[in-house]
Design a protein around this nucleic acid. Structure first.
Lengths: 247, 247
DNA sequence: TAGTGGTCTAGACCACGTA
DNA sequence: ACGTGGTCTAGACCACTAG
């Protein structure tokens, strides 16, 4: 005997509408049946219909216009979702990080500008080598404003991804992480650290972190060997759809 | 006289709870006040409270556990959102694309594998040069299965981003876009097209598109001059929070 | 058994848009 | 004036978790 799984009504409404959209019954820009029509059709109440439509809106299928109706949205193919932190590129979380240097120093002008620091403020500089399967795959440099009396725990410095490290002492939420991805030719210093020849292409991932008050609280670059590291992203629309359909 | 903007009650509930989370009253893992408690506190009904909590859940602040309670979630710093299509990297949409080649041909083994094509199926190959302010900034190669009787419109080929192009004839929704980002050294052919020297670092953006039935329907690579093109991403958590707070 | 979240009802009133 | 979506009520019953 199989077990009947009864899906909530609002979920069935959402599914039905999606099926009809995919079947071409409603095209982008079209108006869906009004909420009261759907209430009649499914013999249910307004809140239930709205709960179903809310699912569609979350998945990006729908745009509600007060006073007019619910309309099918054009899908966005240009929004991508990516999962990334420094530890994703190494295989062994414990063995994979070699701490090269931790220093408190006066920042050079570039770093000072990036962190919007007043003069005479010092920064913590952190240099790490990321190793995957006995192979150095990335060279990592991070800068944080130095705040007196905030101790740095070695394990944190070594193993915690930058965003988490910076967010830890302060606001956990509302931390903005701006990432820039580019390619660069390898310079002499990094070439030595990574054991490759100068001029080789590197995948460079730059991170800039902001507090809830929009103040810069961290800046850093990750220089990755192009033969070992690549980034992956998937259309956000697709991920939302999958989440929706798996209830 | 100013106009009073009255926010819906469910929105104020959501705001209040967020403020309390940010103030540290509730930490990740903590249980929030139960729905019935919130009903009493705000002197409202269950559906209104739940509407407020639904906002928090969408923004990633909340996890509901049936039979137990609503719990504060740990923020995710590793999920990033990126906006990208080929046309984003050029300044002038109309002048910026030079069509180099459109051919229908037998695929080489790599392309055949990527598109999971049976033998004797042909592919459309599309080569374009992307130009920004009189400067060639990227070389673009795309492959699509050739389907008889589906005309290719020149304007589409020239100006429409790949995902849209491929989705157009077929399912608009449920198209999966898998993107891989890496760095590569420039080869002879691309060096000539982009006017740079061989060996220069390139930012390479590879796209693989799938239909709703998970069949590959497009594959391509975009080779970008590293001195002109970079990608930007922002933490997904932050974007969701902004959306929520701006109602 | 008592408390929790999840679903659902059958209404109400409002602001907005169109004709 | 009428139809639309947006907010909200005051309950109900259910399934799940816990002591």
């Amino acid at each position: 005997m199989g077990v009947m799984i009864v899906q909530p009504l609002y979920y069935r409404i959402a599914e039905d509408v999606i099926k009809q959209i995919k079947a071409g019954k409603y095209k982008p820009g079209d108006m869906l049946p009004s909420e009261s029509q759907l209430c009649e059709e499914y013999n249910t109440s307004k809140m239930t219909v709205r709960q179903g439509l809310a699912l569609l809106a979350q998945a990006g299928y729908l745009r509600s216009v007060p006073g007019k109706g619910n309309f099918v949205e054009y899908p966005r193919y240009d929004l991508l979702t990516m999962q990334f932190d420094e530890m994703d590129i190494i295989s062994d979380y414990q063995q994979g990080v070699k701490l090269l240097d931790v220093t408190i120093m006066d920042p050079d002008p570039q770093v000072q500008g990036m962190l919007s620091l007043p003069n005479k403020e010092k920064v913590i500089v952190l240099k790490r080598l990321l190793i995957s399967e006995d192979q150095a795959v990335a060279y990592d440099v991070k800068y944080m404003p130095y705040i007196k009396g905030k101790p740095l725990i070695e394990k944190e410095i070594q193993y915690i991804p930058f965003a988490k490290m910076v967010a830890k002492h302060g606001e956990l939420f509302s931390v903005k992480n701006e990432v820039t991805i580019c390619a660069e030719a390898c310079d002499q210093e990094i070439a030595e650290q990574l054991g490759i020849s100068p001029g080789s292409p590197l995948l460079v991932i730059e991170q800039k972190l902001f507090s809830a008050e929009q103040k810069p609280i961290g800046w850093g670059k990750l220089y990755c060997r192009s033969d070992y590291v690549q980034l992956h992203a998937v259309s956000a629309q697709y991920i939302k759809e999958q989440k929706l359909l798996n209830l």
